[in-house]
Design a protein around this nucleic acid. Structure first.
Lengths: 127, 127
DNA sequence: CTGGATCCAGACGGATACTG
DNA sequence: CAGTATCCGTCTGGATCCAG
């Protein structure tokens, strides 16, 4: 395992090594999904949909498939009538809790300052 | 501080309170920009552009304006010829370091497991 | 109940060229 | 040097309907 070489021959040096993780975790719905499953434990599809409020079943399925593929969520199918499917966080998913805790702490401590800065901003308006 | 009410009358309960922060921090380029400024300190526009590699000036300007508006980055303009502009992280931006540290730790410890799960996945292929 | 199939809209970002 | 101005492609996500 001696990757002791000081010289990397990679043409495109990795600017920011957390970017792959960011792509994994933070899109419109993945964060709320992980957050909800983390807090509520195992949930059925419909129950999850209800708690997320405005998500559509199509999008919920897409995001759940992605999270399942990436090993963060486990899907369990029960061949009953009517069918039942339950989702829960995996151990790998649970390992994210320090990340979410850090985000929650920062949100509590500093989000108001952001809102204040935003309303005080006088420069060229973005977006 | 007695928010002891068990009943919340809010129609749209906040599903995930970190979502506003997520919107603030994690888009295609905001994370690399903050990461770079955090590690390298004060940088000129062109230098930042060079370090980010493939970003275009238009997008870099857009993201920097947004970060400036939100109080995470400070822009300093020097009316010289040729003009010089320098960017740096604000104290509010620096307060994000625990968040990025948690993300970096998780990336080092668990990203390989994600890649392994992904390659082992046999279900319906998303994306 | 749990989705899959379609179609669609808007946002974000990339490419290129130009300017104070 | 540090952006702006245009144009355009892609991708996520929303709406709706349908099916096992």
């Amino acid at each position: 395992m001696d990757s002791t070489d000081a010289i990397t021959v990679v043409d495109a040096p990795v600017v920011c090594r957390i970017s792959p993780t960011v792509d994994l975790l933070f899109s419109r719905w993945t964060t709320p999904i992980l957050w909800t499953l983390h807090r509520s434990g195992r949930l059925r599809f419909g129950e999850l949909e209800r708690r997320l409020g405005t998500i559509t079943p199509k999008v919920l399925t897409e995001r759940l498939r992605q999270l399942e593929r990436d090993g963060l969520v486990r899907r369990q199918y029960f061949p009953e009538v009517p069918p039942r499917v339950e989702y829960e966080i995996t151990d790998l998913g649970e390992s994210l809790s320090p990340v979410f805790a850090a985000l929650a702490d920062w949100t509590d401590d500093h989000l108001p300052a952001v809102e204040q800065a935003r309303s005080a901003y006088n420069g060229p308006l973005p977006r």
